[in-house]
Amino acid sequence: MDQGLRSELSKQGIFTTTLEGLYNWGRRNSVWPLQFGLACCAIEMIATTMARYDLARFGAEVFRPSPRQADLMIVSGTVTKKMAPQVVRLFNQMPEPKYVIAMGACAISGGPFKQGYNVLKGIDRYIPVDVHIPGCPPRPEALLHAFMTLQRKIDAQKLSGPERPRHLNTDAPSEFPVPKFGPHDLVPPYNPEVWQPPKMVRAV
């Protein structure tokens, strides 16, 4: 819509918007995270919801204990190989549209515990991650920044067309295969449809 016409209308008390704008405005301001903590970062996540940092300002204070009622999974902490199938299963149980924030170095890549035999080297091997926050643990401000990044991402989503998000595309998968326990490692070690190891390019 023409910007001049819109401002003219608003002067006369008529508010105009697009369906897409209204839809995304509603969704981005009521993201309900899953009440789900893994390790140290979970404490900072709780601190973010408390009075000092007040996640409620972003419409995300309603932490749901059940994945069926949640829109957002904050993977807050080290994902071990023993826990990874459960994380994927929880993600599968969440209804679309759903988003994932990988909070902290461990959830991104294994972090300081990367060399552990039982540590998964990044949750993005099994589920698609929307926002990564570095830090060990990230400060609450960093989590707030991740929220705002996610809100911008939701705001930019199209309702139709080839770039429409996963939940509006019937062909896109909504559930992801749950890895199985092998004798030493998870089987498969990563989901090739979600994640491919990038080529390591090093001169030396």
């Binding site: 893994l38 080290t78 826990m83 459960q86 515990f113 552990g116 035999y117 039982n118």
Partner: peptide, 14 residues
């Protein structure tokens, strides 16, 4: 147990 077994002792020995 073991859902947060992140091998602290093994890492510390190295």
């Amino acid at each position: 147990f073991g859902y947060l077994h992140r091998n602290h002792e093994k890492i510390a020995e190295n």
